[in-house]
Amino acid sequence: MAKANGWCGVEVQGNSSSKYTRTTELRRVEDNDIYKLATILDVNACWRKLMSIIPKVDVQACSAAGAVKVSANGGRKYTAQDISLIDGVAERLPPDQSISQVMIDEWKTSGKLNERPTVGVLLQLLVEAELYSAADFVALNFLNEPKPERPTDGPAAHFSLELGDDMDVDT
């Protein structure tokens, strides 16, 4: 099964019941699916975290395989100024529209063939940025894949009931 955090060259697994594949370009994703994703990213300004880690695509990038290799120098596509430009748009948006959708619309149309972002790249970046509401949504609803695994520590880690506490159990 393809892993959510695969690098360049990750195997692309076709899934006949999924709406999209990892190689589907974001600009081919239906608007209302982007909107549902965008409303999730609107919470806690997650769109800013995503926008800030989108990498500059280097010549070795292979979005054709549904993944992207972050260039060694860590070059980012968008600057703080770009982010505040989108912020400025947010102030003038009607209430039923999503700022994250504005950001995604900008991102999905940028770049030439083989440089444009795909669903696979999106998922990879969401996991990297720990935007798990969005990542879980993309995995389940776009790709019909299981939710990406969580790290074992930190705020993203699963929090489960510890058995053997000294608390009395009421039956």
Binding site: V43, N44, C46, E130, L131, Y132, S133, A135, P155, A156
Partner: peptide, 10 residues
């Protein structure tokens, strides 16, 4: 809740 629920989807 916005952070732990909204971003981390717990």
């Amino acid at each position: 809740m916005n952070i732990w629920g909204g971003q981390y989807n717990h």
